[in-house]
């Protein structure tokens, strides 16, 4: 089974969801982990925008429960609302992970209650990360912020999105943090990414992701398919690892 662990929905509109599903079908993607960053992507969302994002993910999962696995977007800036969403959407709802984006660094200690609840629920915390030569956004995490988070909470299922962009360096930084996995989503399909990551990390710590709709399923999957992997390792990265982590 191929699971794309990093897909964004922009709304729960049928036309939008159908476009994603049709493209997934053509690329052989069976299931997708979806999150919403709100209907307008802003660095610092309001509590209402977090709730709107959660409602869209829930609606999409209810429409296509066999295809979508929900992730719940939260922010340290709205701790009460975030904790309520974790209860309604994860503890009592269909979502299977917590999503952090760029409204706080991933090692912000205000996140501690969120992280502790995620550990108790046995769900991962996926944190966006990039290391940009052009400069990160105000509160955009690098690999070090996410590694700090996972190291501080060794029982957390930590998840760094986009291999933080700088794949040549990220795996070296996180290899000593065994509770932290990376996803392969986003960025250009440079040759050698997955092979480089696997020089430093075992194959059970990588997840295939695309970052659709900003990227495409087929192009992003090619990072894994072009890496010269054994069938076993390919299958792990394309879906088995994330399926096991999410218990789906």
């Amino acid at each position: 089974m191929i699971i794309d662990c990093h897909v964004h929905i922009l709304s729960a509109d049928d036309e939008h969801l159908s476009e994603i599903l049709r493209a997934a079908d053509r690329s052989g993607v069976d299931k997708m982990c979806i999150c919403s960053l709100g209907r307008q992507w802003v660095e610092f969302p309001s509590a209402i925008q977090l709730e709107e994002a959660a409602a869209d993910v829930r609606a999409a999962c209810e429409k296509h429960p066999d295809r979508f696995i929900g992730f719940t977007y939260v922010s340290a800036d709205h701790l009460d609302a975030s904790m309520r969403l974790i209860e309604s959407e994860i503890a009592s709802g269909p979502s299977r992970a917590v999503k952090l984006w760029i409204s706080q660094f991933a090692d912000d200690t205000r996140l501690t209650p969120i992280v502790e609840r995620a550990i108790a629920l046995d769900v991962p915390v996926m944190a966006h990360a990039w290391m940009k030569a052009t400069g990160n956004m105000t509160k955009e995490s690098t690999y070090r912020h996410v590694a700090n988070l996972a190291a501080r909470h060794p029982r957390l299922k930590g998840w760094m999105a986009h291999y933080a962009g700088r794949w040549e360096e990220t795996a070296r930084v996180v290899r000593s943090v065994p509770n932290l996995c990376l996803d392969t989503s986003g960025g250009e399909p440079e040759d050698g990414i997955v092979a480089c990551l696997l020089k430093h990390l075992p194959p059970d710590r990588l997840f295939f992701g695309s970052d659709v709709p900003g990227r495409s399923f087929a192009v992003q999957m090619s990072k894994v398919l072009s890496a010269g992997l054994s069938k076993e390792h390919q299958s792990m990265i394309l879906g088995e690892n994330v399926r096991r982590w999410l218990h789906v």
């Binding site: 690329s27 250009e188 399909p189 440079e190 040759d191 050698g192 495409s216 087929a218 192009v219 999957m221 090619s222 990072k223 398919l225 072009s226």
Partner: peptide, 10 residues
């Protein structure tokens, strides 16, 4: 710079 598979699969 890119693996050609990316565009072949695209």
């Amino acid at each position: 710079l890119f693996h050609p598979r990316a565009n072949a699969d695209k």
